[in-house]
């Protein structure tokens, strides 16, 4: 049989998930939306976890909403990777970094986008601050991205 080309078709697999966040993360998202404030949770060991968890990942101790504490909207880039070609569904249309950011007052790092002009502007240890959206809906994307903190 003569070799014929195989057929190809574009497919899209899509799930419109809606996720229940519970009392602890619910508070995190509510604070983002209503107060432009980032909160973490203090464990009995005194560590502040951001975003707040329901359980201390090391001791497995249950954590209550009473232990929620605010942290700063700015912090330090602990590590990062440069995304030169965002995927079609990404919220970011231009190249940017994904970074682990340790906010002041936190002992863990939060994953978020850092928007700078180019990869050359990224350094581990650089200080960044949250840039908020005007219209917030109670979602991690209420923080539009992080940007370098203005030089002092």
């Amino acid at each position: 049989m003569a070799a014929e080309e195989v057929l190809r078709a574009e497919h899209v697999l899509e799930f419109p998930y809606k996720r229940s966040v519970g009392p602890i993360l619910g508070r995190f998202f509510t604070e983002l939306r209503d107060n432009q404030r980032i909160v973490g949770i203090r464990t009995k060991r005194g560590q502040v976890i951001v975003p707040p968890a329901e359980v201390d990942p090391e001791t497995l101790e249950d954590l209550s909403a009473d232990a929620i504490v605010p942290v700063a909207n700015a912090g330090v880039v602990k590590s990062w990777t440069w995304l030169s070609d965002p995927r079609p569904y990404s919220a970011y249309k231009k190249p940017h970094a994904w970074a682990l950011i340790q906010l002041d007052g936190a002992d863990t790092s939060l994953l978020h986008a850092v928007v700078v002009e180019s990869e050359a502007k990224m350094t581990t240890g650089m200080r960044v601050k949250a840039v908020w959206k005007d219209e917030r809906q109670g979602h991690i994307t209420d923080i539009a991205h992080f940007a370098p903190e203005a030089a002092k």
Binding site: E5, R8, P16, K18, G26, F29
Partner: peptide
């Protein structure tokens, strides 16, 4: 001012499906 209880987290994957000889 109701507390946030749900977040929408849609996922989508766009891909090319190659049918192979039999299905083609």
């Amino acid at each position: 001012k109701k507390p946030v209880t749900y977040i929408n987290t849609p996922v989508a994957v766009k891909y090319d499906y190659t049918a192979g000889k039999a299905t083609s």
